[in-house]
Amino acid sequence: MTHPNLTRIAQGVVALLLFFAATQKFIGEPGTVEVFVGLDMEPTGRYVIAVIELMAALLILSPFAALGSVIAVSVMCGALIAHVTHLGLVVNNDGGMLVCMLVVVLLCAAYVLVSRRKEIPLVGDTFS
């Protein structure tokens, strides 16, 4: 169903984009600050999310890629909720770029999650 090489590529994409996103948040790039102001989470939330994203980016390249993908999927779900409920699909006149990136990460992470489902800690054994 899934291909090991595709999984590796997906892991790379997730790690790259999450690393980029985390760095943006750490350095306080104005666009990200605005997003978190919109969510009323500035600045604590920005740093918390940045740390989680960085963790996911590192984990998904490690032997614990399955765990990394779970975290990545979770963060992206949260981001999706933010866009749907608070921010709208177009942020800072980016023509939906941010949301597109988000969906790409979500899909790639989900792909990794599915292909590595047996390696997920605690529940991996229940998948066939």
Binding site: L39, D40, M41, G45, V73, S74, G78, I81, H86
Partner: peptide
């Protein structure tokens, strides 16, 4: 209330 609750929303959703 607060967007922070969505940490739990996501966890429970999964």
């Amino acid at each position: 209330v607060s967007f922070y609750f969505h940490f739990l929303t996501v966890a429970f959703f999964l």
